[in-house]
Simulated scan of single mutants.
Amino acid sequence: MRIQEFNPKDYLPQGYYPWPDLINPHIEKMGIDQIHWIDEDYTYLTEKQQKKYKKMRLHCCIARMLPYASLERITPCHRFILFQSVFDDQLEYKTAEEIDVMRHRLVEVFNGSQPESFENGLLRQAYKIGEEFRAFMPTTWVARFIDAFHRVTRYGVVDEAPYKQNKTAMSLIYYLINREYSILMYPYLYMIDIETHFVFPDLLDKHPVIQRLRTLTSRIIGWQNDIQGLSKELTLETEVTNLIVVLQHEYNLSLKEALTEAMKIHDADLAEFTDLASVLPAFGEYKERVERFILGLGLQIQGVNSFYLNDTTRYLPDGSGFAWPEERSLKLKDE
């Protein structure tokens, strides 16, 4: 198989997952808001990049992930998906040390530190996200969300940077761990609480079953991303952090063989998720809350895949829909 013959719909078609395929009714207003935010705070990007982010329609992704959320509650969520996509995209050529400095500052801003006048619009958006969440979510939840952002950035993005810089594929055993974080999903998994108006008490939040379900969700969406974005990523030599590429390097596989193995990994995680969800321990008074949480995880898995298939130019096979880093977009400070 040549990469030109690869079609992700052959591997993850519409209806592949067992959960409802829904979309938030506020999607039109969300799209208008995202364009406004790009015009207002992402002007440090080049004009070409700004146009590409508008065409990506990232708000459609979060609208599918949180189909029941009110406009007020989903607003910081889709503000965050634009923020995190821009932040992550523009790190392609940054060193681990540079990314960690940026991570540290963004965590400060999420926690309420006001952006300085010389800092760019990414920081202003981060500050607004933190303030909007604090307006209706308890302190415990906000701390979990910020910690999730810290973990995916520090243990995912920072730790994968040397591999991109050296153009070296990870070992499979390490990639299976790193991808759980570098896909950047953990902050979104806590957004289910926003939709359900319920924050798990600490003992339930840390329950091994809850933690494992989050892990599996993050991994499954990571494998989705690796399959859906494969053609785009192969246009850039630094993109060695993809399950299919890792499998090819590890076992000297053809593209078709690596895709088959990648789907086996994906399907094994999906089977574990559905099996675990069917044999839950006794959660007592929280039984219905946990079941709704699991539905929320399933809606996110389904929603992200539907976004890839239906809504965005972000993953065009030739990479032309992606906002690759350009010189002006690499700093947290305005010129």
Rank of each mutant, 00 (worst) to 15 (best):
S182Q: 06
A323Q: 01
H197N: 15
F80P: 01
Y53S: 07
L297A: 10
I81K: 09
W19Y: 15
S320C: 10
E131F: 01
G31R: 11
A161Y: 01
D269V: 02
I27M: 10
D33W: 10
E327D: 11
L259V: 00
R212N: 14
D41L: 12
L236N: 14
P138T: 06
Q90D: 01
L189R: 02
E160A: 11
A148Q: 07
L91I: 02
A63G: 15
Y308C: 11
I220D: 03
E257G: 02
E291P: 00
Q302V: 10
F80D: 06
T140K: 14
R79G: 03
F322T: 08
L189A: 04
L276Q: 11
V158A: 13
M56N: 14
I220M: 14
D267Y: 06
E250C: 03
S218C: 09
T140Y: 08
Q228D: 09
L82G: 03
M65H: 03
I74L: 13
V246I: 15
F307Q: 08
I227R: 02
Y308R: 09
E98D: 13
E131R: 15
Y11E: 02
G284V: 11
Y155E: 14
L213Y: 11
D41Q: 12
A277Y: 02
T196D: 12
D275S: 08
A148M: 02
M185W: 02
D100I: 00
V245H: 12
S231W: 03
H150E: 14
Y17E: 09
L280D: 04
H104W: 07
L91R: 03
L91K: 04
Y315C: 12
V142G: 00
R219K: 13
R134M: 08
T274N: 11
L253K: 00
Y53R: 09
P67I: 11
A69W: 01
L297I: 04
N242H: 05
Y155V: 01
A323M: 10
T238G: 00
P13T: 05
E291Y: 01
M170E: 08
I194M: 09
S182R: 05
S306P: 00
W324H: 14
I220L: 13
T312P: 04
Q125Y: 01
C60M: 13
R219Q: 10
Q125R: 13
L82S: 04
A277M: 13
V109K: 10
E195H: 06
R144Y: 03
Q14N: 07
N111T: 01
Y42M: 11
K264E: 02
D275K: 12
I227K: 05
D147T: 15
I3Y: 04
R103M: 09
S182E: 06
I301N: 01
Y53V: 08
I129Y: 06
R328M: 13
K9I: 09
F83T: 01
F283K: 10
L176S: 07
E5R: 06
N120G: 04
P115K: 07
R134D: 04
E180K: 15
P8Y: 04
A258F: 00
L12W: 03
L12R: 02
I62C: 05
T153D: 13
W37M: 05
E285N: 11
E288R: 04
L176N: 10
L12K: 00
P317F: 08
T196M: 05
E327C: 02
I244T: 15
L236S: 08
N252E: 11
L309H: 07
N305T: 09
T217V: 05
A169I: 07
I81D: 01
Y186W: 12
G156M: 10
I81H: 07
L295M: 14
T139R: 09
L176C: 12
